[in-house]
Structures are given as C-alpha cells and as structure tokens.
C-alpha cells in the first residue's frame, strides 16, 4: 500500500494507525512562529466509528489503508454470516455481525448495498437509503382515522420496527428511509 506524506492529507483519505484503518475527517496545519510544524488530524476509526485526534510532525508519513467502497448484492444470512455477491465477477463475500451492524434489520435479499472492504474483507455495510418492505404486524388502526397523526409501531418482514400512520395496515408495502428509520410512504403493488 502507498504511504502518504502529511502534505497529502485531506478529508476522506484512508490511513493505518495502530493496526486499524482510519479515515481522515479534518486536517489542521499548525506551526509556531519559528520551529517544528505539525498536522493536527481528526480521524475516524473505520471499525468502531470513533473519532480521535492525532498529531503528526509535518512532512512525516502514514501508511495508506487498503479500504474501498463497493456495491454488492445481499444474498442471504446463514444464521451467523451475511453473504454478499459482487455482480461484476460473481465473487461471494461474507460479513460478520460487527461489519453489518445496524444495517442488518434493513437487509432484504437481493438488495444492493454499499460495502466497505478493508484488505478485501467487509468492514462495514450500509443498507440502501430507501427500502421497500411488507408490514407483517401492526395494530389495526382506529376506524375513520386517515390523518396519520400520532402513528403506531409496525413490524416489517426483516424484523425492523418503524412508526407508521394509523391508517397503514398489516400486509401493506411501505417505503422506509434507513438513515432515519422513518416511514416515507405506502407503495402500491
């Protein structure tokens, strides 16, 4: 992997620190009137999501992290691992629960997901921004209420629970924004 000088640092650059891959969030150049210059860098740990601050002497280098984002198709879950396929070369990759994290509840078979690979292994999985899912269980709404005010919980086919308007019923298909976990609309089949 390439090494990067602090002069090449910028937001989004992926580097290795203490054996973990990090993404640079912010890079600040500081220098006393005369003397040693430093780069104060905020970096996000790509495994844990934690943001920490690190300082480098200006001109020093950091090893690049082999981290790439790819689009993979979700295939199935075998009880322990989530299986994905690269639609370009049909190669299959497995991700563990740490990598899939909160995305698990939004994963429907055949969905196209953005998967971050570190050294070719899934590091994190992002669900599609919007998913279309069937409601498997929700309380019957009050008769005549069509305003949507208030809402009620609804369990989706993947087990995710979202708040839906009172008029939405079991068996209906809805669109959900996975970034906020919020109901967007009903979807006509």
């Amino acid at each position: 992997m390439a090494t990067y000088s602090t002069n090449e640092f910028k937001g989004g650059l992926k580097i290795m620190l203490d054996g973990d891959p990090y993404a640079i969030v912010e890079n600040e150049f500081v220098k006393p009137g005369k003397g040693q210059a430093f780069n104060r860098v905020k970096v996000r740990n790509l495994k844990t999501g934690r943001v920490i601050e690190r300082t480098f002497k200006s001109g020093d280098t950091a090893e690049g992290a082999d981290v790439v984002d790819v689009e993979l198709q979700y295939l199935y879950n075998d009880g322990e691992y989530w299986h994905f396929m690269d639609q370009q070369n049909y190669e299959q990759l497995t991700a563990d629960a740490t990598a899939v994290g909160d995305a698990a509840k939004w994963l429907k078979e055949e969905a196209i997901c953005q998967v971050t690979l570190w050294n070719g292994v899934p590091l994190s999985v992002a669900a599609p921004n919007f998913v279309i899912m069937t409601i498997v269980e929700t309380d019957p709404g009050l008769r005549g209420d069509t305003s949507g005010g208030g809402g009620k919980p609804a369990t989706l086919e993947t087990g995710a629970v979202v708040r839906v308007p009172l008029f939405v019923q079991s068996g209906e298909v809805i669109k959900v924004d996975t970034r906020t976990g919020e109901y967007v609309s009903r979807v006509k089949e």
């Binding site: 006393p32 003397g35 430093f38 104060r40 300082t55 020093d60």
Partner: peptide, 24 residues
C-alpha cells in the same frame, strides 16, 4: 497525542508541540 518520531535528544520540537497545542 504525541507524534511518532519525536526526537529524544532535542527539546525544541517538544517545546513547539506543547506551545502549539496547549498554550497558543
């Protein structure tokens, strides 16, 4: 966070580190 490769025999970069990060 102490930068990697700080010299062990030269106090000035250490003074610069403390000055820029803690005092300035």
């Amino acid at each position: 966070s102490v930068p990697p490769g700080m010299p062990l025999a030269d106090v000035d970069p250490w003074l610069d580190l403390l000055l820029t990060h803690c005092i300035e």
